[in-house]
Each structure stands twice: as structure tokens, then as C-alpha cells.
Design a protein around this nucleic acid. Sequence first.
DNA 1: GGGAAATTGGAGTATCAACTCCAAAATCCG
DNA 2: CGGATTTTGGAGTTGATACTCCAATTTCCC
Lengths: 207, 207
Amino acid sequence: MTETARRLTPKGQATHDRIVAAAARLMLEQGVARTTIEDIQAAAGVSPSQLYHYFPGKDALVTAVIDHQTTQALDVQQGCLERLDTIDSLGRWRDVMVNILTEMHCVGGCPLGSLASDLSDSDPVARMQLAGAFSRWQELIREGLTEMQDRGELAADANPADLAVAMLAAVQGGLLLSQVNRDPAPLRIAVDTMIDHLHVLTHPATP
Amino acid sequence: MTETARRLTPKGQATHDRIVAAAARLMLEQGVARTTIEDIQAAAGVSPSQLYHYFPGKDALVTAVIDHQTTQALDVQQGCLERLDTIDSLGRWRDVMVNILTEMHCVGGCPLGSLASDLSDSDPVARMQLAGAFSRWQELIREGLTEMQDRGELAADANPADLAVAMLAAVQGGLLLSQVNRDPAPLRIAVDTMIDHLHVLTHPATP
DNA sequence: GGGAAATTGGAGTATCAACTCCAAAATCCG
DNA sequence: CGGATTTTGGAGTTGATACTCCAATTTCCC
């Protein structure tokens, strides 16, 4: 966000990125507080002085991890949601999320949701940062639904903004239940139910 | 669960309960890992030896807190869901949850959901314990929906089990979004949308 | 090539958190 | 009452963790 990377050698940039990636993975798997600087050093293969050369302290590292996960998550969402021309495309969007979760064996849940639950009440700065990320995500969904509505794929009297909130909540809640049950089914069912709601809103007289 | 409380004086029981209550509050507000034994001692007004007299260590304390929050949460749910005779009663159920969240100023989110996100990938025993709690919660909702279905308040071809999963996901996701936004609206919208789905499933021809 | 800047290595410190220990005080029960 | 048991007080120990420091090495740029 701010003008980081003032004078960064390619090698330095690589080390920087390696640290963020390692921190992101560890914080997702075991939580922020349980992830020690030493853990990150080991996972990234760097020495203490390297880590503190690129980040003033753990707080800055957390900020960088949130940015990293936000970019990652929204990129995936954008890729799926920009071509939202039909109900079926929502099904593909659901498949992408279920597949990612399955590859992770349901460990970690949502990279943004885990951070949000972890940090919302401990780190006001992080909370604001994450609230912004969720706003953008919600907006992405809303835009897609609005386009569908304009195209007549969604009932004219539906409220895309509220439906976007509900859809995002279904994703987050589904991911949490999948994480605790180690089973992708809850995510699939939760999202499918919301998709079904859009469907039934549009075609009330389904035989 | 196991036969705790072998020989406990009333005074001892009170101290025990005070420790659990303090630990539960702190772990909800700042997470398990960030809550130190010293924090709990101060909040409960007990000395180190007292705490370790009643609990072998932090792990045992976490187990006790999960049990405590499970009982609390399911009691509230049971109170609202046992009299689930109409769609309107679901609205009252939603109001109860929104009110509790508002009283907390959206801090902590769901007592069970926060613990689940925090512990699922760090503590396998806690994960199983929490998975059981969510199963019972889900079952409570499913029973309510099934009764509604038997009474004709819900479409005969609806699937109460899947709808219960989706409803629980909406609650959890809504609570998370409300927590990160410090605004009860997402919870209300997410649950309302699911209720609307039940409504539209039952009365497809709404003018 | 050569000086400046960026990057890296590794030992060291200060603090904090979980847990221990022993003995004193309160409480129970027969 | 009186001995056994439970409950409590508070200092102390051990290990872990975030962070520091200085010098060596590599890389950049002219």
C-alpha cells in the first residue's frame, strides 16, 4: 500500500517474498499468535537479521501477510466472478472454492476469515485492513449479481447488495464448518443453498 | 464430561467456576494463545497455586472453556428453537442472536466459532470437541425445520438437513462479518436471507 | 575495477509466560 | 473438638520468544 520497496535488489525482493509466503502459510495453519518469528525463519530459510532487515517487527509482518492474502483471495474471486453470466457460472465459482479447500485437506479455512477471527479483537489496525478486504470481496459479488440482474438472470426485485452479504456469509460460515469437520461438504451445501435461493427467486414456478 | 469434581467444597466450586468464566471471557475477546495464565489469574482474582490446584495446565483450561461455551450456546439455541412453530419464530430466533451480538458491541463473534477458528488446526482434541458441539447445534436446527415441515410450514420437498447446514453457516459467516465490521447488520442480513429462502420455498407464488 | 549500498551470519539479551513448591490458613466430618 | 482434607499465598525456576548488534560478504552502479 505505502511506498515500500525503495531500493530492493532482485535477490532481496526474493528473500522478502519468501518470508511473507512462509509467514502467510504458518499463520494460516496455526494462527498468528502461535506462529513464532523463529518458525518463520526456519520455514523461509533466513537468519534473524535478514527478517528484521525487511520487517521492523512482527506487526509489520502481520500487515504484509494480510495484504498478501487479500491479493491472493481477491484475484481468485475476480477470475471467477468477472464472467458471471449465468447461474451455472456460480456453480463453477463454488467448485473452485471447494477444490481449493479440498487440496488443503480443509486445513486453515479461509485465509482472510481465519485472520479476521484471529485479529479482529486484538489488533484494531488489522481489523480495519480486513474489513476493507471483505468490503471489496462483497463488492465483487454484488457487481456480478447486478450484472446478472441487468441481464435478466436474476429477479428484478432482488437486492444484490443484501444477497452479496448473505453469499459471502455462506462462504465464510461454510468454510468454518468445513474446517472444524475436516469435510468440504458444509461449504458446498451452504453455497449451493444460496445459489438455489437466487435460482428460486428468479424462477418461482419451478415444477 | 469425565467425572470431575470429586471432592469440591462449595467455596472451591465457586473458585473453579470463577476461573472458567474468566478464561472463557478472555479467550473469546483476545483468542486462546494470547490469553495468558496470568491474565486469567488477575481476572478471576486467584493466585497461581489456586489455578493449578483446579486445572493441571492450560490445555485442561481450554477443554473446560469449550465445554462451558458449548453449554451456554446450546442452551440459548434450545430455548429459541424448541418452539419453532412458524416462520415468525425464526425471526425471533434471529433477534435473540442479533441482540446478544449488539450487547457485546460485536466483540468476540460466536463463542464457539471463534474457538473453532482458533483451535481447529492447532489442537486435534479441541477440534473434535468443537465438531461435536456444532453437530448438536446443527441437529437442533434440523429438528426444528423437520417439525415445521411436518406441520406444513415448510415445503415437503425441502431437505431439512442441508437447510440446517446452510442456516448454521449463515449464522457463523454473518457473525464473522459482523465482528470484523463492528456492525450487527451482516448477521441480520445473512440470517434473514436464509429465512426468506425457507419462506420462498414454501410459498413460491408470492405476489 | 572500485566504492557505496544492500544483504547476510550468528551470537547475545531482556522479557515474559507456564509451571513448581512449600507451607499456612480455612474447611469439612466424625 | 480435632485430625484430615481442601484451599490459598507468594516466591522462585525454566524455557521460550521477540528483538539487537556488529561485522562479514555480496551486489549494484559508475
